[in-house]
Design a protein around this nucleic acid. Sequence first.
DNA 1: AGGCTCATGTAAACGGTTACATGATTAC
DNA 2: GTAATCATGTAACCGTTTACATGAGCCT
Lengths: 191, 191
Amino acid sequence: MALSHAILVSLLDRPQSGYDLAKRFDRTVGFFWKVSHQQIYLELHKLARSGWVASAPVEPSERPNRIAYQLTEDGRKALDQWMLEPTEPPNFKEEMIVKLFALEASNRDTIRKEIERRRDLHTQRLAHYQALMAEHYPEPARLSARRRGRYLGLRMGIVTEQTTIAWCEEAIACIDLDAPKRTKSDPARPR
Amino acid sequence: MALSHAILVSLLDRPQSGYDLAKRFDRTVGFFWKVSHQQIYLELHKLARSGWVASAPVEPSERPNRIAYQLTEDGRKALDQWMLEPTEPPNFKEEMIVKLFALEASNRDTIRKEIERRRDLHTQRLAHYQALMAEHYPEPARLSARRRGRYLGLRMGIVTEQTTIAWCEEAIACIDLDAPKRTKSDPARPR
DNA sequence: AGGCTCATGTAAACGGTTACATGATTAC
DNA sequence: GTAATCATGTAACCGTTTACATGAGCCT
């Protein structure tokens, strides 16, 4: 499983509460990996039961209901062990492909519009990633080993979005290959 | 949800049994979407209970324990309705990114090896997709609308694998930026 | 006083995986 | 006969989502 290990990795940096972890997830990999706060709290309880994390001292200046966790020795060992295990490619259930398998003349316009929507969405994501890149990694050539991993994660996000956008353009063009010509003076959709 | 609709789409072509569907999944999108036969049988029962599929007549020449299903009118309507709904990008939980976030000097070689393994794996997949492309779509310029959707699905597989491979190469180079030089006469790994 | 953000949880349902189980037919 | 393939299922468990619930502190 992955989420528990993602939490452990995040705790490498510093002790964090479930709330911290959830927010950090949202800010960093949240775009392509949605994690709900419920799932994180659940996972933290499990990790605590396994003895891989333990509640860390909380400053009295902080919120009283805050519960921070830190990595234990056992947690660190489990993480090191996991790092040695092979990493399988994720299986991404892309619904768009399912819809494409149902492509026919009658739904061509629906599907093209849907692909256009997806293209725009991924364009927004790409812009967001590129902003993060410019902000945090203006000079990737000389990065500390510590930060290089994060840089590469962001790079994966960028190239993935670029590829998806390019594929969307290709798909739209391909779908329109034998479509009736639409001009600005006659933008009506068929069917 | 996606699997039930993937089944409905597959049944658009012809009535099929759970076994047929499982095999077809494996042959087509199986590389990036693993589906177990149990899940398919379960889904088929649910779809039958919803009245979206119904058992189709089976030729006496076929296996006696074979149960084929076909789309019903209701199923067709539900599918048409689903086609109109927006398609969210899949959230792919790429464990590699989690490992990268834990990158440091001590695990650099482990991670580089892991990325090399993944690169080789995706290279194999790419070769497989390209073979399928050459076999089934030698001339993509003029494809029937029916087959164009499948062609685009395969194209997505190809560009995704290409991007992943390129990213792996980039990541390996980046990780090795400040690594001790390794030559053929001295291929020992540091640490 | 009311609304926002911070902060943590429970419960039910759902989707998916793993393990286990069975039986028919085909090929050697 | 026995191994492989065809064919369908059950049960337990795990991970995730959705809905619901609560309370503290901060700002206006």
